[in-house]
Design a protein around this nucleic acid. Structure first.
Lengths: 136, 136
DNA sequence: AGTGCTGGTCTCTTTTTGAGACTGCCACTC
DNA sequence: GAGTGGCAGTCTCAAAAAGAGACCAGCACT
């Protein structure tokens, strides 16, 4: 029993998804996973799921992100259409970041992975320490 | 309407998940996402979902991965308990990689994201080219 | 004796990340 | 009117990670 997923994909379907059908730059899976894969992307998406945040708020919410990476990650998320950036002309101009519909939709899928991570983190940690013990 | 996800998590819950409750090294989300986030991890998991593969087969299946990264990614996946590595004492010894139960379980969650990626790739690409046009 | 397959490791270069100093603007305080 | 602090970044430089590709041992076949 190779899990239900196998029933959904033939060998060629898997290969096509992996390789992008020969056009690697255009492979959906790689392209989208790449966006999530950043060290900070998923964390920022999680935060913005709750409510829009300003630059400085996000910085405080994720204390160990550098300003440079916060700027860049938000920029990338905006470019991919997940995040909306709005500047308010207040005295010190403030910038608010919020999830777009596409962002919410994407997070719905990502959320499955987050839930799994929370549920199975112990199993992963055990596997890891077991593996490390073997090597030693 | 901030999507149903908001109903599932209070501000503190989000923060705890993001920060790992102050223990950053131990944050489940970061820890697991980190594993998926590698450029090749999800691709190899997809391939192994179908059936076990040998080193050289994987290399041919994902043509633009370097041997170094294939070795290392498989090693990491094995360490996290997603992949099982078995050496067969054939004439030129062959090595087979297969998904563990944990790996299958994890891929189930990851699969949601893959499906989303395939469905919404066009939207992401449109957002991206629109954004790039704005900047130009 | 040469070729090719196996599953890797080693070294070198390029790319990506991270830490943190620096900027310009404004408001408030002394 | 000089200093302090918050805002949203940019810039530079060092460190870490990824990628390319040469190299390795062992065996089989020719």
């Amino acid at each position: 029993m190779d899990s239900k997923i196998v029933n959904l994909r033939s060998k060629m379907e898997v290969y096509k998804a992996i390789s992008g059908g020969g056009n690697f730059a255009n492979c959906p899976v790689r392209d989208v996973i790449q966006g999530v894969s950043g060290k900070w992307s998923s964390l920022l998406m999680m935060a913005l799921t709750e409510k829009p945040y300003r630059f400085g708020e996000l910085r405080r919410l994720v204390p160990d992100i550098s300003q440079r990476m916060l700027t860049q990650t938000l920029h990338d998320l905006q470019r991919d259409g997940y995040v909306h950036r709005e500047v308010f002309p207040t005295k010190p101009p403030s910038v608010e970041y919020s999830l777009t519909d596409l962002g919410h939709s994407m997070f719905g899928a990502l959320h499955q992975l987050i839930l799994w991570a929370e549920l199975n983190h112990d199993a992963v940690r055990d596997a890891r320490s077991g593996f490390d013990a073997m090597q030693a």
